[in-house]
């Protein structure tokens, strides 16, 4: 079943994106085309194939638990759109 505009609005809201009517129209048209292209993987037989997600032989990396200097608070906050000097500030939640 092809993706509908309602699907897209629902997903956009999950992804915290507010689309305009014009954007919705264009994204819908593009996604219908792109999804029908990526569908071609469905025809591949993958019975018993473990999905791969990484290609290096990753091993746990251990180190001594020694405290090292971290980013000072002032620097960590320096790019924030709003702070009270000690914390990030956001609009009222409750």
């Amino acid at each position: 079943m092809p993706i509908t505009k309602d699907d897209i609005l629902k997903i956009a809201s999950l992804a915290r994106l507010e689309l305009s009517a014009g954007e919705l129209e264009k994204i819908h048209k593009d996604l219908v085309q792109i999804i029908s292209y990526i569908e071609q993987i469905q025809k591949v037989n993958t019975d018993g194939i473990m999905p791969s997600s990484q290609f290096i032989k990753a091993e746990n990396v251990f180190r001594e638990d020694i405290v090292k200097p971290s980013l000072p608070r002032e620097k960590a906050l320096s790019n924030a759109p709003d702070t009270d000097g000690e914390y990030f500030k956001v609009p009222k939640v409750l």
């Binding site: 992804a15 993987i41 194939i49």
Partner: peptide
């Protein structure tokens, strides 16, 4: 960027994950 975030959220969403993301990782292994 918006197009890709929406497509990415779609292929990971409940009901589609196995058909897209999981399957793609299997074909990637092949």
């Amino acid at each position: 960027v918006k197009r890709r975030i929406i497509l990415g959220t779609y292929v990971l969403s409940a009901g589609y994950y196995d058909a897209y993301y999981f399957k793609a990782q299997q074909v990637r292994e092949l």
